[in-house]
Design a protein around this nucleic acid. Structure first.
Length: 259
DNA sequence: ATGGTCGGGAACCGA
């Protein structure tokens, strides 16, 4: 079972690139972030005609997440539990083939300090609560998404330039570590402990050409899921394509479950 | 060159 996360930065602009990548990468489940459209405007048929199951949680213009799956998606939860007043579409969760997957688009938090940074930290605190609850699940669990957190300076090409950025602030990193230490395994760092790896390159200032990247898209595995991990990777090359997203897909391959 | 690049959606905001 291959599970992936991909911030596509607008489904309307990215549909051809996304379909290409699905064809070549052959994932079983994909968490998309920044679909940037209402549910009614998501091009469901483009995926359903190819055999995908589709669940969306969108909003007009910004944010928005979706799940694509080769197998049926059941027990869908839309919105991060814990704050009924939160109107931002950043979280969708479902079960597929005995695995629970939460797909998240964590708030960016810039500029910091400020209300957006406060919202980011509140959102991470709420996510920590949901993550803790999910660890009680009998199924293997994967927390997938654009976390908008560089866990360490090794995940930042230009740490000096990013020191005051909400993606790198000690408060953001501490909140990320608090979730990790509940018992989650970060798939890419487990698979590649010391490699310099990025998942995002800004459109500005020739960041891709200079490899000024950030590693902010992560897959966190519950202990049961980590036991099943056979491989993980970052599909870096598609960043070079015309009309590419500023993020690239990150994936993990889990072995079939016993029994 | 005191900007630079995208996407959404129709003037700017978000990243």
């Amino acid at each position: 079972m291959k599970l992936a996360t991909f911030n596509i930065n607008g489904i309307a602009a990215r549909l051809p690139r996304l379909l290409e990548w699905l064809e070549t990468a052959q994932p079983d489940v994909v968490g998309l972030q920044e679909i940037k459209c209402e549910d009614s405007r998501f091009p469901r048929a483009a995926f359903e005609d190819l055999g995908w199951h589709v669940e969306t949680h969108g909003q007009k213009g910004f944010n928005g997440v979706a799940l694509l799956s080769r197998h049926p998606l059941v027990d869908v939860v839309r919105g991060l539990p814990g704050d009924p007043d939160d109107e931002q579409a950043r979280f969708i969760e479902a079960s597929v083939a005995g695995i629970r997957i939460a797909n998240l688009y964590l708030p960016n938090g810039n500029p910091q300090p400020g209300p957006k940074f406060t919202y980011k930290l509140e959102w991470m605190d709420r996510l920590a609560g949901r993550a803790m609850a999910l660890l009680e699940d009998e199924a293997p669990v994967v927390l997938a998404g654009d976390w908008n957190v560089c866990p360490t300076d090794a995940d930042v090409a230009r740490p000096d330039m990013m020191a005051d950025d909400a993606l790198c602030r000690p408060e953001s990193r501490a909140a990320f570590r608090r979730i990790l230490t509940q018992g989650w395994t970060e798939a890419i760092r487990a698979r590649y402990p010391t490699q310099t790896l990025y998942t995002f390159w800004d459109y500005q200032a020739g960041a891709w050409a200079k490899n000024w990247g950030l590693r902010i898209d992560h897959l966190l595995l519950s202990p049961a899921a980590a036991d099943l991990m056979v491989d993980a990777g970052i599909d870096r090359d598609i960043r070079a394509r015309e009309k590419a997203s500023d993020h690239v897909p990150v994936w993990v391959e889990l072995a079939p479950q016993a029994g």
